[in-house]
Design a protein around this nucleic acid. Structure first.
Lengths: 152, 152
DNA sequence: CCAATTTCAGAGTAACTGATATCG
DNA sequence: CCGATATCAGTTACTCTGAAATTG
């Protein structure tokens, strides 16, 4: 017999994510005019400059085809610059432009505020535990459990 | 100055969610032929039978227009039956059909397995803390922080 | 020749905004 | 008349699968 709690985490993550995206969309609409998906990619690039499209895709758990679409758009809008990797002529490494840095500086305080409001009733210790747990979950998901990345 | 850790949780939830949905889509493709979005609604209805469209939407943090689309499709496919609330002629209360119960019985073990694989390195105590924390976050998000539901 | 990366093209899923009608 | 619900219609956001070219 499956108890309700057995499945609550995967559902709960989905709902919380939906709530977060909803709020992000709303708040991003004022500031810059970047979509949630674009903001997310920019934030990742700020934290890890020089990532390639393939690397960005892996870290975001999406296909490279999905990521390239975001990346190309960001490049066209002058938010990202891409340069050939000197060690591997096929790889293009992405970095934020000054414009993007400025945009993030303007927008990130709002995102921090969102997170703070959302976690108002969650202690610092509890946040650490959650962060650690979700990170472990992401490692497993990245490894490609039984599904999408079938080991042959 | 914004430290990287300041924003990690909202991003981490997004990535974990993406990983979960990716796996769910893959595993659901075999069993029933329900989409992730449909499965999620069915699971919620099993846990809370008799919810109206508006209630389902609120619990899922989506608009009623988004939810009605799923619900109508499920009804057409014979997975959900809807009846007028005797106390309020406008409200339609949804319940799973026997067919849907059978489908969930077949599919849920796979979803439980997914959650177990994903949380393999997370202790029972840690899961409790995460569950509690995300629930608190969802309460805040449901209340409509500063954004989408602007209090005038 | 093989593995990884990039990227074009088309498709499908999922969520949204706006507007209308009904019920209490 | 107001607030909540249901729902039609059109649109936008996001991700995927398939296929082709390039590099080491």
């Amino acid at each position: 017999m499956i108890r309700p709690a057995d499945l609550s985490l995967i559902h709960l993550v989905g709902r919380v994510n939906q709530g977060i995206r909803r709020e992000m969309r709303f708040r991003l609409a004022r500031g810059g005019t970047v979509s949630v998906q674009e903001y997310t990619a920019l934030a990742l690039l700020r934290e890890s400059p020089g990532l390639s499209n393939a690397e960005l895709a892996r870290r975001s758990l999406v296909t490279p085809q999905s990521m390239i679409e975001i990346l190309v758009k960001l490049e066209q809008r002058g938010l990202v610059s891409r340069e050939v990797d000197p060690a591997h002529g096929r790889v293009l490494r992405s970095r934020l432009t000054a414009h993007a840095e400025g945009l993030l500086d303007k927008v990130e305080p709002e995102m921090v505020a969102l997170q703070e409001e959302m976690l108002a009733d969650v202690s610092a210790e509890q946040r650490e535990v959650i962060l650690d747990g979700l990170l472990r979950a992401m490692v497993k998901l990245s490894a490609g459990l039984a599904g999408s990345t079938r080991a042959e």
